[in-house]
């Protein structure tokens, strides 16, 4: 989506007046929708929809050997996949010229075209996309998606790196021999701006949702280690995500900073700062975007990110508490 100069000015004036295009003020988020336990084969999963941004996170657990330099710790890895939404765009783009050049008579061709159009519509309906290629984020095309994915997963692993934000020692089974390895797979279903924030919340919730099997006993036979896991499906432990970081993208438009930018606002910004807030500390700060910032602006961005991040973290925790209260009701448990 390319914006004209006039549109950009309109967005900029809105930000200055503290009334953005969709009626929010500068520190306000768009409504979010959160679902947990959406993937039955995963150990924990969450889906987050932040206006048009749609993210699916699933956690898989495997047994692995810990790093020799950190024998007391488990492992945590993040994989981000942006290619899916670009694939849909790719399918849409690919099919149109084919239909035009099909060598059949017009009647047949139009029938076939209708059929094809319907399937495309169904694909896009299924995942909640508009049937036009409005999700065609140019950054996603080809290898561009890879760069964005690498940036997000690096930022996540950097934010979860400190043991103050996420305690990996809980994932250790036997020191130096066996540990749990968490694979956090992140699928971006639709991109409507502000990917970092949406993904970080979804990851936090998915980790909270994750059920780590309880280890019953460990047998050592020389160097061989055998572990046996509880048979009871519901006897499992939960991870502590009290301090798991929540990321806030602070975007500078004109002279003012905003949070939760949509696609149009992202285009108007000269630079942005992604802050990962864990508890009352920063676990990662990363400057993104093309431009540079004045040191004082940077500090202002940090202050704003800190304030909003803590509010956001509280909101997420409250939702988690409520969902836990409601979730444990049932005759099985």
């Amino acid at each position: 989506m390319g914006l004209s100069e006039a549109e950009k000015t309109y967005v900029l004036h809105g930000v200055e007046e503290n009334l953005r295009v969709d009626g929010r003020d500068r520190e306000e988020y768009r409504p979010m929708e959160l679902e947990t336990d959406v993937v039955s084969h995963a150990f924990g999963s969450a889906r987050l929809r932040l206006a048009n941004t749609d993210v699916l996170v699933a956690v898989k657990i495997e047994v692995d050997a810990p790093f020799p330099e950190r024998p007391y710790e488990g492992k945590l890895e993040f994989f981000v996949d942006c290619s899916f939404s670009s694939m849909i765009t790719w399918v849409l783009n690919k099919m149109k010229p084919q239909m035009a050049s099909s060598p059949m008579n017009s009647h047949m061709a139009s029938k076939k075209m209708l059929a094809k159009e319907r399937t495309i519509k169904m694909i896009s309906m299924d995942i909640g996309l508009p049937s036009s290629s409005a999700n065609a984020t140019p950054n996603f095309e080809g290898r561009g998606g890879e760069v964005l994915a690498a940036e997000i997963s690096n930022c996540l692993s950097s934010a979860y790196c400190s043991s103050l934000s996420f305690d990996l020692t809980k994932l250790c089974i036997l020191q130096g021999k066996k540990c749990w390895k968490l694979y956090v797979d992140i699928l971006i279903l639709e991109c409507g701006g502000n990917l970092f924030d949406a993904i970080s919340i979804a990851v936090k919730v998915a980790l909270r949702n994750t059920q780590v099997p309880r280890v019953k006993c460990i047998d050592m036979d020389g160097n061989n280690v055998e572990i046996s896991v509880c048979h009871d499906m519901f006897d499992c432990q939960r991870l502590n995500v009290e301090n798991a970081p929540v990321m806030v993208t602070v975007c500078k438009i004109g002279d003012k900073c905003i949070v939760d930018p949509d696609v149009a606002e992202e285009q108007c910004s000269v630079g942005s700062v992604v802050v990962a807030v864990s508890g009352n500390r920063f676990s990662t700060v990363l400057q993104t975007g093309m431009g540079s910032l004045h040191p004082l602006t940077l500090v202002d961005c940090l202050k704003m990110g800190h304030k909003v991040g803590q509010k956001l973290d509280e909101a997420v925790k409250e939702v988690l508490k409520e969902s836990l209260r409601g979730g444990d009701v049932g005759f099985i448990k």
Binding site: S162, V273, R281, F282, S283, T284, H294, P295, V299
Partner: peptide, 27 residues
């Protein structure tokens, strides 16, 4: 830093640092 213009071209922090400390570190 870009010095003549006094602009921060890139900033990256990892670990766990409080908001009160960061401005001092930037300086």
């Amino acid at each position: 830093m870009l010095h003549t213009h006094n602009q921060v071209a890139q900033f990256y922090q990892s670990g766990s640092i409080s908001l009160d400390k960061l401005p001092h570190l930037i300086e």
